[in-house]
């Protein structure tokens, strides 16, 4: 350790001096104070830059045309009184929508559904992935089995669910044989659970595959070292594997969250525009507003939902950054 007043040279050849009262300089801060020498850009650099811009252009234009610009249009529409007069009303539409009882009902139901379904989707798919990562019999067949719901068209999924859970469906027939009364699963408070089961059935396979891929990328040498150091399987999982799965977990959570909103498609086909109140989702509200040409309420609702989604995703990214950063480089 150099003493005060002694000079030493950092790895970059910069003399290091320690001054009383001053923060000790480290390599990083020293590097940042190093004068930047601008290297002259060569023709090759310019060609490379133009080339990369050209390659990126179609994607950028597509994203702008189909995502960014429409989103800006939606923001614009949400501040107007109607699409004909186009008078600016500020946040009036947001106030009206947020004070609407049906909208609040929809927010409550959508949030409840996401809170129940998303963690279940992540945890259950992780458990399945861990199970299939081990050398169990019929491993390939199980993998295909869990992936098969992804290939089934939505209309067929709806049909299957109606056959199962309709008032006169297979489930009620079965419980009827045991002397129990029929339950209207889709038109009662139990509807939310039916929808959760539908969501899990459809999405577990995809999440499981992502986790399987992430599990296979965990460095085996670290696990071997841990095993040699007498780490228990539980410790190996929570201290090593889970850390490596952090990014994938964030991704799976985000995808599950997005897919939890897409469940509207199946719910709409099962129950039409105005379902039982416990499965009335945000998209029901927005779809009905679209049908009634109330684009202002639709836009306001969509923006509010987007903002919530953005906040949640930012939190997830922050969590990923915090837990996963020591695994980078």
């Amino acid at each position: 350790m150099p003493q005060t007043g002694e000079q030493s040279v950092s790895e970059y050849g910069i003399p290091k001096k320690r001054f009383p009262g001053k923060k000790r300089e480290n390599a990083r801060t020293a590097h940042s104070r190093r004068p930047r020498i601008k290297r002259k850009r060569t023709k090759r650099d310019l060609i490379a830059q133009w080339g990369s811009t050209l390659f990126m252009a179609p994607s950028v234009i597509g994203v702008l045309l189909f995502f960014v610009i429409p989103f800006c249009v939606v923001i614009y529409y949400s501040t107007l009184n109607n699409p004909i007069a186009k008078e600016f009303v500020g946040l009036e539409n947001f106030k009206l929508v947020s004070s609407n009882e049906a909208f609040r009902n929809a927010v409550r139901n959508s949030a409840l559904f996401s809170v129940i379904a998303v963690p279940l989707a992540v945890v259950l798919s992780l458990i399945l992935a861990i199970a299939l990562d081990n050398k169990i019999p019929f491993r390939t067949q199980f993998r295909s089995f869990f992936l098969s719901p992804m290939m089934v068209p939505v209309a067929s999924v709806v049909l299957i669910w109606q056959v199962l859970f309709d008032y006169n469906g297979a489930f009620n027939e079965l419980i009827g044989k045991f002397g129990l009364e029929k339950v209207d699963y889709l038109k009662s408070d139990k509807a939310i659970f039916v929808v959760v089961v539908l969501f899990l059935w459809k999405n577990l396979g995809y999440n499981m595959i992502l986790f399987l891929a992430a599990l296979s990328s965990v460095p085996q040498d670290i696990i071997e070292v841990a095993t040699l150091e007498s780490a228990t399987p539980r410790q190996i999982f929570f201290k090593i594997k889970l850390r490596y799965l952090a990014s994938t977990m964030v991704f799976v959570t985000i995808m599950s969250l997005i897919n939890s909103f897409k469940i509207f498609r199946e719910v709409y086909l099962l129950t039409t525009d105005y379902p039982y109140e416990t499965i009335y989702m945000l998209q029901h509200y927005m779809n009905n507003k679209f049908r009634k040409l109330d684009y202002q309420a639709l836009s306001a609702g969509a923006i509010m939902m987007s903002l919530v989604m953005i906040v949640i995703i930012l939190i997830l990214f922050a969590a990923d950054h915090h837990y996963g950063k020591d695994l980078e480089g």
Binding site: A102, N105, Y167, D184, Y274, P275, Y276, E277
Partner: peptide, 24 residues
Amino acid sequence: NQKSAEDVMDIIQSRVSLYIKENR
């Protein structure tokens, strides 16, 4: 004759209430 009037009325009540709340 699959459901009673009361069962059906409860569901109608719920769905129409939703419709009214949405469109008021």
